[in-house]
Each structure stands twice: as structure tokens, then as C-alpha cells.
Design a binder for these strands. Structure first.
Lengths: 351, 351
DNA sequence: GAATGTATCGAAAGCCTATTCAAAAAATTT
DNA sequence: AAATTTTTTGAATAGGCTTTCGATACATTC
């Protein structure tokens, strides 16, 4: 007696076969035309008879056909491959998350997908991601390079890939750049501290290899100078832009014989790290120690007291960068643009 | 008199040409072999003479040849296209950022690139992203679906694409799932509150369409029941899982005639929103109002007071999910696994 | 009626790779 | 030395798409 075995579709061993929903070929066959014509209606590139056009659209609908972006990308080397790369140093930093959101909005509207590369300020990792991105034939790239002298990225730019930098530029390279006026932002913060009577203002900076770190320190120094406060090297600590560096350097500073009365922190994560230290030392903000951070956070009001911070319009930066990139993809010869946005001091209660 | 015009490479109008660094063809020509042989040494799939192998490797080095991942993907429909999709509801939520980091680590180690899709809990957007991902011929997908009943995603699973769910499952579908014991985590939080003497414990929950929201509320209720505290519907507010909902619902609760003495918030963003409200009302934590949040944050100690929270091992979740996905890609028939990780109560100072 | 122009469409090439099939070369056995 | 096996290689195909070029059918002009 024969036993009948039922093998449902989802279990039969077709797993190594293609999963794709039919090709243009099937659409063409069903509509009784050639694939060339199908391609034409899909990109409405050339005139095709209205009647056959409708027939093809019908076939597409019936077969739920979706063109393969992969094949398209392989075929038309440049331009409409509908894939962008985004290269950021640290997705844990809420600033980059917001930038990413801005990029994503533009990308989504323009039917672009995004390959996300988070290189953690590790140049080897960055290089490998750039290899991957090139090999993926992306249409364009938005990057916050590890340094201004990033050779690998510069070569990519020279090779003609549309690139827009955010937050950090690329020395001697023709790239669009969207960033804020770091120096002015830092100046505003420190100026505000001084005007509120603080005298011993410390600065916890980020990696010196990152341009914005340097510029923010310059802004810090300018403000001191303009108010005739001597620059005190003891009060400046440079770390590696991480949360942990904020914890550690704030601790060093606050345990000084003659500790600072105010802190200007160089980025988001440093600020949070410094706050941890301040609270663990049971210091009162702003009575014992005032603090202003570079980079605002959407939940700055959830901190206690609410954090005074230099706000970078992160979402806007991402959006602009996305727009610039899409422009450049369609017009690679357009001259480069450098957009410097305003960094705004959001005065709350920590100073 | 003729003027000599110098046109640097980067400006000459070759921008619409291919940017690619040579193909296998060039390598083959230079090494004096056929492309088939080149392909073989690249994937060391079959034995090739050591001598010619070295010759080919030399040519590859000299030309700085890098295989096109796009062509590869087009060719071999399933498996090694080296591209993964990640679909998350809200990248602004630090929990998902950490999950992403975990995934990224595994992906990077295995030479996978990641297409990031942030659908903002918008089902239409999610559907469109899924279309894109299919059309990109990804090898696998890690997703936190909008709901358990996500038809679009279920179909993708049935079609045989390797999928791993994180944080939220998919009803009646065969998928791997990595998540935490939401119910137990919530129970632990509320139990802790009760043991510390709090009686009127309110709960601000997330979207009821998200399974974890429901489970956390169940945990909340169980803890009340086990301590013979009557469930009070007035003290439970369900929002849309956003920061703003946290602000608003906390405000509603705290302005009640008979306000709660403790808050159990349903996720990261809700917690931060609630904190904003608490601070703006100048309430003291935990004296006036205690608070425990679901989802820990790496900077929980930067809050004042340090936040007591239910910690999901987010990075670990991402890592495990990544590993499961890669396993499944190489062995699609492997039975499904459901990994339930522990949600640990991190007791700090907010309760 | 012949010549020209236009709208519409199909055949075929090409993008870059992996893989099958068979041929050639080398090594081994008889 | 002949026959067999093993190793090594190349030609050709497929994968899904865009685009060029040429062909057909039709409308227009002289």
C-alpha cells in the first residue's frame, strides 16, 4: 500500500532556487510584446502605443512584477541604481542618528535604499566599508570621514563618485559639505558661561584628528581671550570622543585641587559621561558645577536639570546632505557647495 | 597660436562612464587565462594549478581588482550575495541602535553589508521597504515587524527568504525569534516597586498593536495581582510608544486628583518623556514619584537620579539574531529557534 | 504613385559573474 | 606503449535589465 506524502510548498527543497518574482520576460510573454517594450513603459523612456502600454501594465499588475534593482544596477553603471551609502563614525551618538533620519527621509522620497556603514572611528573598518560600497555600485555616498586627510575617501571622490560630507570636510577635495559653524557654536557656549559669572571653565574635547574637535576648542579659546581670561592648559582635556572619556576626564578635572566651576563638553557622549561623574560626586548643577554641551539631544529636558546645549540641526543637516547628493547624482558637474548651518545655543537650566 | 588646455582627470567629462575598477576580464587578460579560472581562484572553488593561481593573484593585486558584488548577486540568486536587510520601527530608540550595533558586528565579520530600513511604525513605509529589499535580492532579513500579523512579511517568509525577528514575533509563521521575556521583566519592575512600598503604580504603555506592549502590561498586572493590589484602569495609559506620548500621558497621570506614587513606563522613549514631565512639575524622584522604565540606556547613570530600569541585552540580541540569520542562510532547513533572553532589573536610584 | 517622415516595436549586445560541460594536458595504471 | 584516470582549463550560458540600431507599419507630403 502506497502512502501519500504531502509536501507543502514552503518545505519542499526549493530553497536554493531563485526566490524572485518573475522577470521582465514573463511580463513580456504575457503581454505579447518584447522585453524592450516592457522596459520602455517601466521607465517611460520612449513613446509606446497607449493600447499596448495598458496591456503591459495589466500584465505587471497580474504578475505582481517588480523589477530587479540588482540587474538594473548592473546594467546602467552610473546614476539610477537607487542605492546610497552612508558612512558614519558612531551610530550610538544621537547626533548621527538624527542625521541619518534626515538622509533617510530624502532617500525614501526618492526611492533610494541606504547601505549603512558604522565604522566606529576605526580607519581600517572604514576602508573596508568603502571597498564594499564601491563594489556595490552605489550611486552616491554621504560620509563623515574619520579625518580630513582620508586618502581612501579622497580617491573615491576623485574617481567621480558623488559624495557629500557631513559634519567633517575633506581637505583639498572637491566635495559638498554640510556642517555647522563649530567655532561660533563653541564660542557662544563659553561666552554664555562667562557672562553668567563662571571663570574657571574647563573643556573636555574629542579626538584631535576630528576637525570639529579642533574648531570647538578654538571657539572655546577665543571666548576666553575676548573676555581676558587666561587660557589654562590644565583645564583642557582631550579624549577620544566617547562616553567613557567623558566620565574619566570629568573626574580628573573635578578632582583637581582647584577644580573648574564650569564644563564645556565637546560632544553628546562626552556630555553624558561628564554628567555621570558629576552626579556620582553629588555635585549640584549649576551651583557646584555648570555644564554646557556641544550637541543637543531631543530629550535634553529629561535631564535634571535640563541641559543647556549647543544645538546642531542634525535632522536638517541630513536632509540637506541628502538633497545635495541627489542633485549631484543627476548633475555631477555642478560646482561644490559648502553649507554652514547655524549652531544655536539652547539655554536651559544647567548654566 | 594654439592654446594648450589641461584637463585634469577629475574634471574631464567621463562622469557618465563606468567608475568600476576593471572586471574579471581585465584580470583574465593580464594573467593570460580565462575568466572562469579567475573566478575559480577568487572563490577557491576548484583546484587550479598553483603557478597560474599565483599569476592570477598577482594580476588582481596589480589591477587592484575588486569583484562586483552586484554582478555576483545577480548571478547566484540565493546565498552569497553578501547583503542583509534590517527593518526596525524607530532608529531613534536607543534600544534599536544597540540591536543594530550587534547585528553590524556580526555582519562586518562575515563580510555582509546592511541595508537599513527605518519604517517609523508606518505600515505603508514598511511595505515599501520590503519591496525594495526583495528587489535588492538580499540574502536575509532581520526585522522587528510592525505587528504580529504583518501579512507582507509573512509572505516573504513563506517565499523562503531567511528571516530572523527581533523584539517581536510573527504569528503562525516559521521564523527565528530573539527577544526578551517581556512579561517577567515587567513583573520584576513592578514587584520591586511594590516591595519598596509603592501602592498606586501607574503604567504608561506603548502601542497595543505591538506584542511587547501587551506582554509588559500583562507583567504589570500579574505583579499587582500577586500582591493583592487591585488593578485600577485609571492608572494605565496606552500611547503610541513615542517620547511625546510619554510627556503627555505622564502629565495626565500626575495631574490626577489622586496621582500615582510610582510610574512604570513601557519603553525607552516613554521613560524619557515621562522624566521631562516629572522634572517640569518639579517633582522629586523617588520621594514624590518613583519611576522604573522598560529598556535600559547606556547613559542611565547620567540621569538624575540614576534610572532604575529593566535592561534588555540589546547588543546581544542583535548579535544573536545576526548569527542565527547567517546560520539559516547557509542551512535554510534548520528548524526555527526562539531565543528568549533575560530582562534584568538594574536597580539604581529612581526607585 | 513615389518619397519622406514618424510612431512603434523587436533583436541583440552588453553589464559582470558563477557554473556546467567538455576538451586538453598531465599523471597514473595496465 | 596503450589505456585509464586525474588535474587543469576554456567556451558558453544564464541571470534581468537598458539601450542602440534597424525594421515595420502607418501617415504625410510632393
Amino acid at each position: 500500500m502506497k502512502s501519500f506524502t504531502f509536501v507543502p510548498d514552503s518545505i519542499s527543497n526549493d530553497h536554493k532556487k531563485k526566490r524572485s518574482m518573475g522577470s521582465m520576460n514573463e511580463v513580456a510573454r504575457r503581454a505579447g510584446v518584447s522585453i524592450a517594450t516592457v522596459s520602455r513603459v517601466l521607465n517611460n523612456s520612449q513613446s509606446v502605443n497607449e493600447e499596448t502600454r495598458l496591456r503591459i501594465l495589466k500584465a505587471i499588475r497580474e504578475l505582481k512584477y517588480q523589477p530587479s534593482r540588482v540587474a538594473k544596477r548592473l546594467r546602467s553603471k552610473s546614476g539610477s541604481s537607487n542605492l546610497l551609502g552612508v558612512l558614519v563614525p558612531d551610530i550610538r551618538n544621537p547626533f548621527y542618528v538624527d542625521v541619518l533620519m534626515g538622509i533617510e527621509e530624502v532617500a525614501y522620497r526618492n526611492n533610494y535604499a541606504i547601505i549603512m556603514c558604522n565604522f566606529g572611528q576605526d580607519e581600517k573598518k572604514e576602508a573596508m566599508y568603502l571597498d564594499i560600497l564601491e563594489s556595490e555600485a552605489i550611486d552616491g555616498l554621504i560620509a563623515a570621514p574619520a579625518t580630513e586627510y582620508d586618502q581612501r575617501l579622497k580617491k573615491i571622490v576623485k574617481n567621480g563618485l558623488p559624495v557629500v560630507c557631513v559634519d567633517r570636510g575633506l581637505k583639498d577635495s572637491e566635495v559638498d559639505l554640510v556642517w555647522v559653524n563649530n567655532e561660533a557654536g563653541a564660542y557662544a557656549a563659553v561666552d554664555h558661561l562667562i557672562r553668567n559669572g563662571y571663570k574657571r571653565i574647563a573643556h573636555i574635547g574629542g579626538l584631535p584628528s576630528i576637525p570639529s574637535s579642533v574648531l570647538r576648542e578654538i571657539g572655546y579659546r577665543s571666548a576666553l581671550t575676548d573676555h581676558q581670561i587666561d587660557f589654562n592648559p590644565e583645564l583642557v582635556r582631550l579624549g577620544d570622543s566617547t562616553y567613557e572619556s567623558g566620565v574619566r576626564l570629568a573626574s580628573e578635572l573635578l578632582k583637581l585641587q582647584n577644580p573648574p566651576d564650569a564644563l564645556f563638553t565637546g560632544n553628546n557622549l562626552i556630555t553624558l559621561g561628564a554628567l555621570e561623574t558629576i552626579h556620582s560626586l553629588k555635585l549640584k548643577i549649576p551651583e557646584d558645577i555648570a555644564i554646557i554641551g556641544f550637541d543637543d539631544m531631543s530629550w535634553a529636558n529629561s535631564l535634571n536639570p535640563a541641559l543647556t546645549a549647543v544645538r546642531q540641526p542634525a535632522f536638517e543637516i541630513g536632509k540637506r546632505a541628502g538633497e545635495l547628493l541627489i542633485q549631484r547624482i543627476s548633475d555631477p558637474k555642478r560646482p561644490c557647495i559648502q553649507m554652514t548651518m547655524n549652531a544655536e545655543l539652547m539655554v536651559r537650566s544647567s548654566c
